[in-house]
Nucleic acid binder design. Structure first.
Lengths: 218, 218
DNA sequence: CGGTCTGTTGAGGCATATCAACGTCCGTGG
DNA sequence: CCACGGACGTTGATATGCCTCAACAGACCG
């Protein structure tokens, strides 16, 4: 758990402090909602196992996927700003999350400088990665977006010690399309094309990146 | 300045503490760069007057506008995460910014709970507004994006006591297009159409929102 | 007054959406 | 165990919204 939940830059003693915060974990079944847009914000979560998507609702009920959270990543930070969550979080597979009460975390940040630092960096890292996603949506073609998405997931897996080249992607084509601003058919076509070109090898949800270098050039 | 630079939720004494941080202001001419991607991160800035854009570079030199910062808004938060700025900030008109040294701000956050709160909320608010922009880019049509952009700027102006219905928009059509993921021609066409429909009235950079309600329905 | 930057508008083409058909996988109940 | 149904994925044909290219007008500035 230590390397999973908000790891970097904390000393052992601070880690153990952090562990005292984590009252409990919560298990989620595939499809279950952890929190909804508008729910009162009390907790931040860290994905312990599995993966979740965050979604925002547009008027007319259309929903857009705004994020994918893999094991080890934080969830719910958007609630800090207004005291209610801005998006909803739904499990893409059976998953568990660590529950981190925000009030307690806030106190800990006041007591410990490194802890405060870590918190600032965590928040700022989200700002940066969302800006990167804005770039993807704003200036890349459909195929470029799919490639960028695969590379992003690959790299995030690698950061946590999993394989760079092979991972399970539990999103449906439709969810990927929503996240990438395109239709599910276009996602499917892009993946098929990559497969034919020998860049990747997919079997259902399992993605194997065959030629990382060429995928990066797209 | 008090109501401009990071105002909400601080007591008078905390405000004066904050003011001791602000070593100085900096004046920028139109087109001048405040900081660049990769520059070492030392300061956060608050726009005192004028406006700036933030841009990120894509490989092949293409640049994408990732944000617009109006008077009173914060700038440079993305640098916290890695210690170097992730984007560049360029003045859209002659502007001044307050310089807030981050190290000092961080200390102040440790000493003062409300200050820390404010900082967390500021960071989280950026996360939320970027997520909203991701939704705009991912699921709206060209005209819807332009309408959403005008409404966003209008509302942000209103928050600071300026007029909801009339404001100066210093971005070029090209910059708006880059921010909204479309070409300058499409931006121009959308604005022309809004004008013909009596939704807005533009004269160069000056935008007058005539029919807010109908603009919101787009 | 000429040059450059910005904005507008039109015509045509292309990338992606839409619509449709079909295949595959998987859980469920007979 | 097999048959069935529904969710998901793939692929093709067609439609369309936006991009591209182009021409021109106005604003700004030296």
């Amino acid at each position: 758990m230590r390397q999973l939940c908000m790891p970097q830059g904390l000393s052992a003693s601070e880690l153990s402090q952090l562990e005292t915060l984590i009252c409990s974990a919560r298990c989620l079944e595939r499809g279950q909602t952890l929190y909804r847009t508008g729910d009162r914000f009390d907790n931040i979560y860290a994905v312990r196992s599995g993966s979740l998507k965050t979604v925002m609702l547009h008027r007319a009920g259309r929903e857009q996927v705004t994020g994918l959270r893999l094991a080890g990543e934080a969830l719910g930070l958007d609630g800090i700003s207004t005291g209610t969550y801005a998006c909803s979080a739904v499990a893409l597979e059976d998953s568990t999350v660590c529950i981190v009460p925000y009030r307690a975390l806030r106190s800990l940040c006041r007591e410990s400088g490194p802890m405060q630092d870590r918190m600032h960096k965590l928040l700022a890292a989200h700002i940066v990665s969302e800006a990167a996603q804005m770039m993807v949506l704003g200036s890349l073609s459909a195929e470029e977006r799919v490639a960028a998405f695969l590379l992003d997931v690959s790299q995030r897996n690698a950061q946590r010690g999993y394989s760079v080249s092979e991972f399970n992607l539990r999103m449906t084509r439709e969810e990927m399309g929503s996240y990438l601003g395109m239709t599910l058919e276009t996602v499917s076509r892009a993946l098929s094309k990559f497969q034919k070109s020998g860049l990747i090898d997919t079997q259902g949800k399992l993605v194997h990146i065959v030629d990382l270098a060429r995928l990066q050039q797209i």
